[in-house]
Simulated assay, not measured.
Amino acid sequence: MMINESYVKEILKNLLEIPSPSGFYHDIMAYINSEVNKLGYTFETTNKGCGVITIPGQEEGYIVGLSAHVDTLGAMVRSINGSGTLRLTSVGGYMGQTIEGEYCKVHTRDGKVYDGTILTTQPSVHVYSDARKQERTLENYEIRLDEDVDSDESVRELGIEVGDYVSFDPRARFFDNGFIKSRHLDDKAGVAALFGFMEHLNTNNLQPRHTVKIFISVYEEMGHGSSFIPQDIDELIAVDMGAMGDDLQCTEKQVSICAKDSSGPYDYDIVNRLVALSKEKEINYVVDIYPFYGSDVSAALRGGNDIKGGLIGPGVHASHSMERTHINAILDTTKLLVYYTA
């Protein structure tokens, strides 16, 4: 099976360039809507802002759901300092040191965008004797704006206020050897895999056995992205990143099939089928357990949805930090989705 690699890369690159911290989804969902329309599939939105893409199946009576989240880690302006810098509050869970020195953008409520840099409050060893020892918590970070500001009044004159979103520069790089490094591969790599899935069906005039509903959530990092899903979905497979490290098997070139995460075991039959298909179709896969991980399926189950659930995705190194994956893992994830829904 040949998946359109250039298409998947183009979609992923475009997704990474559009800021979308949890809840700040309007621009990226407009892009997704436009791309789905080009493929000829139906796109709808929920009241919460999530997207639902419908791909008609050959048989009626059963609906397979596939989900991925387009929201990312980010921050909000917590307060404005008298010096003209900004204090932060996190959107999503990450270590403070992973954003130290990062370029960022502040998005005002009236649509203005300002550049800045995230620094500690003791950013220079030439000035602060204990700069190296300063605790790396968000309370000790601030945004230095690339504007001529030196007071809270001058910041507010720009239109910046408490509660404005802050997005992190993804710094995406695509290498000839297949590696891709960027922030927010969790889970824009999963969304790109779903677009590869749709493009493959559309280009080859394929129709899945059962109707497929693709759910794009915009609050997954908050834990409630898919707490509501269309009620006619019978099973839901989250397409999210595979974590790496410690005693985990997954690498950046493999598809992760999750047997259990912090929300408990995934559906026994779905996991078995994913493993069997991977073996039969020679998909480069591993099975792993993620004790500190939750997915859109986890949220859907907690929301009371009567579904079977599964979780797969490309291996991603250094999740919620400076992430890296490999194009082969994304393409193999797409292939597994095509085989699973055939």
Rank of each mutant, 00 (worst) to 15 (best):
V239A: 08
V239N: 04
D240W: 00
D240T: 10
M241A: 13
A243V: 08
G245F: 11
D246N: 06
D246G: 03
D246R: 07
D247F: 15
L248E: 10
L248Y: 01
L248F: 03
Q249P: 02
C250G: 04
E252R: 00
S256K: 05
I257D: 03
C258P: 01
A259P: 02
K260P: 00
D261H: 05
D261E: 12
S262A: 14
P265A: 12
P265F: 07
P265S: 12
P265D: 13
D267Q: 06
D267A: 13
D269M: 12
D269G: 09
I270M: 11
V271Q: 04
N272T: 15
N272P: 10
A276K: 15
A276D: 14
A276H: 13
S278E: 07
S278C: 02
K279A: 06
K279Q: 12
K281P: 07
E282Y: 08
I283Y: 01
N284C: 02
Y285K: 05
V286S: 01
V286A: 00
V287R: 06
V287A: 10
D288S: 04
D288W: 03
I289P: 02
Y290W: 01
P291N: 07
F292K: 12
F292N: 15
F292E: 15
Y293C: 01
Y293T: 07
G294W: 09
G294T: 14
S295Q: 03
S295N: 07
D296G: 12
V297A: 09
V297D: 08
V297C: 10
S298P: 08
A299E: 07
A299I: 09
A300K: 04
A300S: 13
L301D: 00
L301E: 08
R302A: 14
G303F: 05
G304L: 09
G304A: 11
G309I: 11
L311P: 00
I312V: 15
G313T: 10
G315N: 02
V316W: 00
V316P: 01
A318F: 14
S319Q: 11
H320F: 11
H320R: 15
M322P: 05
M322K: 11
E323M: 02
R324Y: 10
R324N: 08
R324W: 05
R324M: 15
R324S: 13
R324E: 08
T325L: 00
T325Y: 02
T325A: 05
T325D: 07
T325C: 04
H326P: 03
